[in-house]
Amino acid sequence: MSKHHISLTVNGDPTEFLCETEQTLLDVLRDELGLTGSKEGCGSGDCGACSVRVDGRLVCACLVLGAELNGAAVETIEGVAKAGVLHPLQQVFLNEAALQCGICTPGIIVAAKALLEENADPSEEEIRFWLAGNLCRCTGYDKIVRAVQKAAAVMRSA
């Protein structure tokens, strides 16, 4: 058995790791790189708790192999706040109580950030369908959807 040697950037930092073919990006982030903010809720792409971006594209880290990622740019929840300053989404999620247990929160913030970068003023329906792959069992989604709307307004006026 020989592991694959992968070079990439993670949250802008040049990074290298060794992985087996079977290891997903989520396994690599959590077990090799110590980035445990991305959570495993299902391992099958159905819950979105491991949402990350690869070359700008929103994906489930559990459905990407680590071995695929030579040269890729990966962004995770750990890269959303810059230099200790929260992203507007993070601040609004706190202000609006848009989390309860918080296990889905990193994935939802990563996913919502991708949405707002593509669509600065999404409708409620657009937010709901964009986030349909991010399961939350605590909130009933109401406060999450409102927080994304408010964060969008904050970002538009920034």
Binding site: G37, I77, Q90, N95, A97
Partner: peptide, 20 residues
Amino acid sequence: RPVRPDGVDKVTGQANYGAD
């Protein structure tokens, strides 16, 4: 309706759950 004290760790991915 203040911000919850454990909130920042949860929106930044720093909070440690069982598997972390």
